[in-house]
Design a protein around this nucleic acid. Structure first.
Lengths: 222, 222
DNA sequence: CATTTATGATAGTATTACTATTACATTTGC
DNA sequence: GCAAATGTAATAGTAATACTATCATAAATG
């Protein structure tokens, strides 16, 4: 049960929250709180209160709410990639790896006991509910240069390369996997809140099947 | 050059903006302003100022910024559907209609001179930059009941039915087209701001090809 | 001509998103 | 064991935001 560190760009915090107790409690509580009341309704004051600490203390770690969300979401993509790398070791074909990757994107996550201060399941639900908000802003270009989106980009690359192993002539690996990852998130959201926009009833099985078919049909040479 | 009216649910405004001059100017100016400075930076005060009117006047038409955005985006989906219906009359096969629909989702739009107070091109760019924000909130279930997302749902249905004409056994028409419509938007955004997440260089051609291939490969019986 | 409707002008409130300062407790380095 | 650095709490203050309310007036309508 050795510790595991997910690396997140230093531009995503004022002061590294992984390095102090309060920092870790901020991560833990803000995931909870954001998932519970929604990003828009969160303020640093409320986080401070929930921590029995203060607004000012939270500001020491993160410049603002947006940066905090970006941190959490990047952490999640980084963690998913580690998780995928582990699982891929047990698989041989690129196709099996892709299938497994799609499952990991969609299936509810268990707590990773190597990282006690972050509840991965809650974080996953947070990502489903909020992830496009980190790039859909007028600051996207500046933040892109700061590395706000590296986690997402890396994950897309990884999956895109698997696709190219299956069919080196496939022309749209980046577009396909940014689409698949987005769809993995939005289909979960739609299934729960806007069911007319999906064909899944409950559970993640249908979403996995839909995405797997779509992915493999797109890649395969014919 | 006869007028054309796009119907938007009455729950999406306090007072129908299409019915007064000021209302139309509010639509026109807020599209411009939101596209220019971004949703987050818009306030009703700024809209009032841009109109040489007042904050209070804007509040008479819309309860808040979120409702205004929802109105504009619904208007856009409604307008797109009308546009598609027109174009479909000139086409015979469901496949051709789907191909054309994807083009309309992605290609830059010309101003529709039947509706002088709305610049469809600017509105399209606004939708690309902001559309998930109308449903990614904790209020989604309540707003769904008010009809905030009808435009999107109807468009998905329409395209899903075309897919079923091609292959009545296809299992995921709703998921596929909510994915394709979302991807049409996000690929435009990525191409401009996060190019590592797409394979398109410039222009909308590559995006259209990618989406068309993905769609047809998914639907087709094999 | 009377009245409804639309708009403008102004004021006010609670909340948010910060910034700054001070003080104190704890850890660490020597 | 002491000094310095670090982490945190407490408090105060500011500018902007998101509204709500009221009143006056102009224009449209019946």
């Amino acid at each position: 049960m050795n510790a595991l560190n997910i690396s997140v760009s230093a531009k995503l915090y004022n002061k590294n929250p992984e390095e102090t107790e309060l920092g870790k409690r901020i991560l833990s509580k803000s995931i909870e709180l954001m998932e519970e009341i929604g990003y828009e309704h969160v303020t640093f004051k409320k986080i401070g209160l929930a921590l029995e600490s203060t607004e000012a203390s939270v500001y020491r770690y993160f410049q603002n709410k947006h940066q905090l969300l970006a941190y959490l979401i990047n952490w999640y993509w980084g963690w998913l990639e580690v998780k995928m790398a582990q699982e891929f070791m047990m698989l041989n074909s690129a196709e099996d790896k892709l299938k497994r990757a799609i499952q990991l994107l969609v299936m509810p996550m268990d707590e990773d006991e190597r990282i006690p201060h972050i509840d991965e399941g809650t974080l996953q639900r947070l990502v489903v509910a909020e992830y496009p908000k980190i790039y859909l802003t007028k600051e996207v270009d500046a933040e892109n240069e700061e590395g706000y989106f590296l986690g997402y980009k890396r994950l897309c690359d990884t999956l895109g390369n698997l696709a190219l192993q299956i069919n080196p002539a496939y022309k749209y690996p980046h577009s396909l996997f940014s689409t698949v990852i987005s769809a993995a998130q939005s289909q979960q959201f739609f299934t729960e809140h806007l069911p007319r926009l999906s064909d899944a009833n409950k559970g993640s099985g249908t979403i996995v099947q839909f995405l797997t078919e779509m992915t493999l049909n797109s890649i395969q040479k014919r």
